Computed example of a mutant assay.
Amino acid sequence: MSNYQASHNRYEQSRYSKCGNSGLKLPYVSLGLWHNFGGQDNQKTALDMLLRAFDLGITHFDLANNYGPPAGSAESFFGEVISGPLKPYRDELIVSTKAGYGMWPGPYGDWGSRKYLVASLDQSLQRMQLDYVDIFYHHRRDTDTPLEETMQTLSDIVRNGKALYVGLSNYNAADLLEANSILSKSGTPCIVNQPKFSMLDRTIEQQGVLDAAKSAGIGTVPFSPLAQGLLSNKYLNGIPKHSRASNPDSFLQSEQITQEVLNKVTLLNELAQQRGQSLPQLAISWIHAKPSITSCIIGASKVSQIEELVATQHQAPLTEQEMKMIDVILTSD
């Protein structure tokens, strides 16, 4: 680990965009550690992916307290890397983590109370061997806790130096705007929203979340832009062994892979080939054609997948006509 030296040209052809109204810039794609970086995964492969990502200009690494499995193990692994080979580059990195899902028993280990958020971030910092994170997200709205309590806690965390910026994830449009109003009055506006978004899941577009973020000057950094792998060639000929859909504990279940979905994916794949792209690259191009998009969180199980998606930034953006063609495909029965 200690012999690593980052590529000298890692920034030469990398694209970075401002995150909303803030001065923070994020890379075209960011690497998420939701899957394949936990205690049960191949740590050699995980290390190779992290270091190759940085060599390719990916500066943003996205985590959460419950990433693993087991929960917390992705942060622990990342802590070993950022205190080892990536330690000389800490000031070049954007490290984000989240709290909002269950982490320990009892009434204080979940949701959005001040008690939980402060304790969770302290644990995350300990696991990652860091003094602060760059972005701290509330992972989901807690309707049992006053929004003012949750937002004031996030603001205080920034003021106490444990995070530099506030982010929100999985908030609907109304809650996002109300939360940002509270944060802005405290002097720590939300700079980034992290929702689920892909060609196969356009809920945030249909429910006005994208427009709300844009109107408030909040950057959008979607997760699952490949719809848990559906927007790849992986499932065109059935469900392969060891894929996410073959795992009963996965968020992607086999019953979601209907013939209707496969028909759409097949047509999208044909369009991608006409453009000289892979289907995953088309999915990333589509995300970046949307308003207020700053970056998107990609997952990976091997280095070549990261290389493939990073290359999308150098490909021609989708034309208005191509966007209309995609809409026709996605709205067809």
Results as ranks from 00 to 15, higher is better:
6 A>I: 13
7 S>Y: 08
11 Y>L: 15
13 Q>W: 04
14 S>K: 09
16 Y>H: 12
17 S>W: 03
18 K>N: 15
19 C>F: 03
22 S>C: 04
23 G>C: 12
28 Y>T: 03
33 L>Y: 03
39 G>P: 00
40 Q>V: 12
40 Q>K: 14
42 N>M: 10
42 N>R: 09
44 K>T: 01
46 A>W: 00
46 A>M: 04
47 L>G: 06
47 L>N: 03
49 M>C: 09
53 A>V: 00
54 F>T: 10
54 F>K: 05
56 L>M: 11
57 G>D: 06
59 T>M: 03
72 G>M: 08
73 S>F: 07
73 S>E: 09
85 P>Q: 09
88 P>H: 11
99 A>Q: 04
99 A>Y: 05
100 G>H: 05
103 M>W: 06
104 W>Y: 15
106 G>L: 11
109 G>N: 10
110 D>L: 11
112 G>S: 09
118 V>G: 06
119 A>L: 05
120 S>D: 05
121 L>K: 02
123 Q>E: 14
124 S>N: 07
125 L>C: 07
126 Q>K: 15
127 R>Y: 12
127 R>N: 15
131 D>N: 15
142 D>H: 08
143 T>Q: 03
144 D>R: 14
144 D>K: 13
150 T>I: 06
158 V>G: 08
159 R>L: 10
160 N>Y: 05
163 A>S: 12
167 G>W: 01
170 N>L: 01
172 N>H: 13
173 A>M: 12
175 D>A: 13
176 L>M: 14
181 S>L: 12
181 S>D: 13
184 S>D: 07
191 I>M: 07
192 V>F: 01
193 N>G: 09
195 P>N: 08
197 F>P: 00
201 D>H: 15
202 R>G: 10
202 R>W: 11
204 I>F: 07
205 E>Q: 15
212 A>M: 08
213 A>R: 04
221 V>F: 02
221 V>G: 03
226 L>G: 03
226 L>S: 02
228 Q>T: 06
232 S>P: 02
233 N>E: 13
235 Y>V: 12
238 G>I: 07
241 K>V: 00
243 S>C: 08
246 S>Y: 02
251 F>D: 07
253 Q>D: 00
255 E>K: 14
257 I>H: 04
264 K>T: 02
266 T>H: 06
267 L>Y: 00
269 N>Y: 00
275 R>D: 05
276 G>E: 12
279 L>Y: 02
280 P>W: 04
288 H>D: 12
288 H>Y: 13
304 S>E: 14
307 E>H: 06
307 E>Q: 15
308 E>R: 14
309 L>W: 07
309 L>S: 08
312 T>R: 08
315 Q>E: 14
319 T>W: 06
324 K>Y: 09
325 M>D: 08
